[in-house]
């Protein structure tokens, strides 16, 4: 593969930016996260450019985000009340989007990573486990906990029907 680092960043920045934003829920943090992941990718570019550099960047972002989350010692606050309901108007996408972002903030970094990987990147649980470097059982547990909490926070987002696992 003769793709240069610059070409790679130019082509994949939009998609990577979206993932970074979903993982952090904050533009500034998302920029920092992507920059950090790309810097690490640049240092190892010779080794990884022949493989799947995008997967590498995503993996770095997931782990970096978890690491930052731990370092910041974010105190999880389980709010018994939904933070912002979408109400009955499912067409109000802005409200729903804000509700989602607020709800994602209530998840742990690992839970949010599982949500992003599973429902935004559309990876299987096995692929998520591989990307996060954890066991399948851990992914299931985080996914289950994340959906349960999202269901509590934004009931309109997640229907009560259990998610069927695709391994």
């Amino acid at each position: 593969m003769s793709e240069t680092f610059h070409e790679f960043v130019a082509q994949r920045s939009p998609a990577l930016s979206r993932t970074a934003y979903l993982l952090t829920g904050d533009h500034q943090l998302a920029e920092d996260l992507l920059q950090s992941a790309l810097a690490r990718t640049y240092r190892h570019w010779r080794r990884i450019r022949g493989g799947d550099p995008e997967a590498y960047v995503r993996r770095v972002m997931y782990h970096q985000q978890v690491s930052w989350w731990r370092r910041r010692r974010v105190v999880e606050r389980l709010d018994p009340e939904p933070v912002e309901r979408g109400g009955g108007d499912h067409g109000d996408s802005t409200v729903l989007r804000l509700s989602l972002l607020a709800a994602l903030h209530r998840l742990t970094a690992r839970q949010r990573a599982v949500v992003v990987l599973r429902f935004y990147e559309d990876l299987t649980e096995a692929q998520v486990a591989e990307a996060l470097g954890c066991s399948l059982g851990t992914v299931k547990r985080h996914g289950h906990d994340a959906l349960r909490r999202l269901r509590e926070l934004v009931p309109d987002l997640v229907e009560a029907t259990p998610e069927r696992s695709i391994r």
Binding site: L96, L100, D156, V158, E159
Partner: peptide, 8 residues
């Protein structure tokens, strides 16, 4: 989780 996917 269709809505969740769309919202994401």
């Amino acid at each position: 989780t269709v809505r969740l996917r769309e919202a994401l």
